[in-house]
Design a protein around this nucleic acid. Sequence first.
DNA 1: ATCCCGAGGG
DNA 2: CCCTCTGGAT
Length: 216
Amino acid sequence: MSRESAGKKKERAGRIFEQLREEYPEARVALDHGNPYELTVATILSAQCTDKRVNQVTPELFRRFPDPEALAEARLEEVEELVHSTGFFRNKARNLIGMAERVVERHAGEIPRSMEELVRLPGVGRKTANVILGNAFGIDEGVVVDTHVKRLSRRLGFTRNDDPVKVERDLMRLFERERWTLLAHLFIWHGRAVCAARKPKCEACVVAAWCPSSRV
DNA sequence: ATCCCGAGGG
DNA sequence: CCCTCTGGAT
């Protein structure tokens, strides 16, 4: 198999982006939230868990702890109980309270708007920080690379890397900055509906014609 | 590299 | 049973 030129790959990437944008005009964060604080909490909970399940526990969580000040004073056991069904509940509960404490003490109760400050919050890594920056603040700082984005990027031939940071770098070189936040949503939407981890529905895929992994 | 951890699908 | 789900900290 001959190696695709950089120009051809970029052109192919553009066509795939347009096609997916047309297919999923509603693509956006699926985590229910009303402000940056709520999105931060929901995104911390979303690790290795479906957004659907996160949305089942956050209403009660937000009612009990409507802001960082309240969450910082929460009883660990109560938070553990509320987030139990999302998995990793001990880590997540401890991180949520620790996040809130730091936001109150170092950021006057406001979720910070920079990558550097965000990743210093307990439970917040680069992926979570990118979700907050892109979707709560409208800042295209990077590309959210989760399990879906990584899988589709590899299948589409946009990266050969396994390390999320390298996958992100490859995507940032391939797509315009203004597209970074939407790109992740399109990949996640398509990954859930069609390009699933287990049984990808290549016969129903609207970008199969440009996909080197397509079986159709 | 390994641990944290629950729930649903195939 | 095994795999997967918007990962992060050690």
